[in-house]
Amino acid sequence: MMARVAAALVSGLLFGLGLAVSQMVNPAKVLGFLDIAGPWDPSLALVLAAAAGVALIGYRAVLSRPKPALAPAFSLAQETGIDAKLVIGAALFGIGWGLAGLDPGPAFASLVFGQSESLFFLGTMGLGLHLARRMN
């Protein structure tokens, strides 16, 4: 139990460090990628590619084992096909991402920079998440 909590802490540390190193905690950097008609900054695409690439290789190695090191089984989402909820949810998510330049991970990590905007965003994000969960 405590080992699993420690593992989650280490994973979070790596994730938070990665978000800061790649500057994805900075809404201006994210919007520089999303604004293709402005002075375009492709950095975010490389962040996603590197993260997904490392995870792709690592996941293959990990999932070739019968179970995770510290838990009885893997908790993975089932591939249930593409439905309206997925598409509408992703579309709304993108609009919000474009409006604020923040998404859940960077919003949390951005708390370190001490700006009240991060808290406003996290507050309404939690509310939105809660509302969607209640509908489901």
């Binding site: 909820k85 997925l86 598409v87 509408i88 949810g89 992703a90 579309a91 709304l92 998510f93 993108g94 609009i95 919000g96 991402w97 474009g98 409006l99 604020a100 330049g101 923040l102 998404d103 859940p104 919003a107 905007e117 406003f120 965003f121 996290l122 507050g123 309404t124 994000m125 939690g126 509310l127 939105g128 998440l129 809660h130 509302l131 969607a132 969960r133 509908m135 489901n136």
Partner: peptide, 15 residues
């Protein structure tokens, strides 16, 4: 920012 947070949260929950 406030509207963006609401949409990001709701969209992530739904999607």
């Amino acid at each position: 920012i406030v509207l963006g947070g609401l949409l990001v949260g709701f969209g992530a929950g739904l999607g």
